[in-house]
Design a protein around this nucleic acid. Sequence first.
DNA 1: GATATGAGTGAGTAAGCAATCACACACAAG
DNA 2: CTTGTGTGTGATTGCTTACTCACTCATATC
Lengths: 199, 199
Amino acid sequence: MVPPSATSTPTRATRTLSTAEERREAILTAAMPVFAEKGYHAAPTTEIAKGAGISQAYLFRLFPTKEQLFTAVIERSRERMIETFTEAADRAEAEGLDPTEQMGIAYADLVGSDRDVLLVQLHAHAISAYMPAAREAMRNCFAALYSLAEERTGGSPEELKAWFAEGMLINVLTAINAEQVDQPWARSLTDIEGDCFNQ
Amino acid sequence: MVPPSATSTPTRATRTLSTAEERREAILTAAMPVFAEKGYHAAPTTEIAKGAGISQAYLFRLFPTKEQLFTAVIERSRERMIETFTEAADRAEAEGLDPTEQMGIAYADLVGSDRDVLLVQLHAHAISAYMPAAREAMRNCFAALYSLAEERTGGSPEELKAWFAEGMLINVLTAINAEQVDQPWARSLTDIEGDCFNQ
DNA sequence: GATATGAGTGAGTAAGCAATCACACACAAG
DNA sequence: CTTGTGTGTGATTGCTTACTCACTCATATC
């Protein structure tokens, strides 16, 4: 297919081409759910390109390798988490609530409602042992989240560690849909009353 | 290649063929590191078959689909963990040590030294959202580990939850090699003094 | 020996994959 | 109107993949 063009006059008011930056954004948006569902290796770049409304050839012009695209997606999911935590901390501060608790709740909400962010993280964890670029991206993610949590909660290292551990548990339990399992282990582990900072 | 046969006389003492069960074991042993390194989708069955010393065709006779092979590998890594925890609990009991702490240490040792067990778990976590068989296997894994931990530590639900959370954190930090990172977040999170049951 | 069953393979098949290349069109500036 | 640059594509390439099929050999039982 040829790029869409105005039928009569391609006047200056109507642009038919997007900027590369807009396309890059569209690609990331399309890539997130595909990587989330299928992981790095099984995610076809054709499917991502189709989702972004461009050809596969152009995708490879904007992201020269699939690996670069994947790490960009990891970074984007990091940004989502940072936003979520920042908003929760702001809200806690404004309403005089405990920031640690509010940030924890906000995180559980985020990964519960936006599975893509969560699943991209999990795939990145698994692949990072043998993919240096992903490992680097994950380390940066931890670094950013840790310093944010440190600043906004003022917690001790022990508290921060417990808070992160809780987050990692939420990740896995959400991935396997533990809250829908009617068994003792699932009920206990998903019980929000039992967390490290909320009792 | 033709299956190996004794040159002169194939007498009853020397068997040239293995039993299917032996082959199945060999396949699982060969499959573990391949799935660990590459994840489900990127792990070639040809490579696994070669590692097990059989043809790919015979692999598919013993495990009709790749998915069945993968879930068998998940179960095998669960067995490894169960063994590790059981031994640690026995040792703790014999020497009068805290079982919770000993099991935690044993786990950190396990995933630190045998990366395959860890990485198979992480890949399974990530894939389980869209692969029911893996999800089921992971749930069974949690169920088994939870009841074991409950029995052997006698901990409260809150303690068990914190213990599992700690384990999930160890997983991720081990995957990204956090202990080799010389930054505040990495030092704090990998600090073994700061865990939930060891202070 | 004959015969049945299980162990084991070589050689495919059909599909899907990342990445490339030569080329077309849109737009802005002289 | 032309020229340069950035946006965009169709077609292809070379490779890998899970899975199958027709077949051979080993072993055990009668």
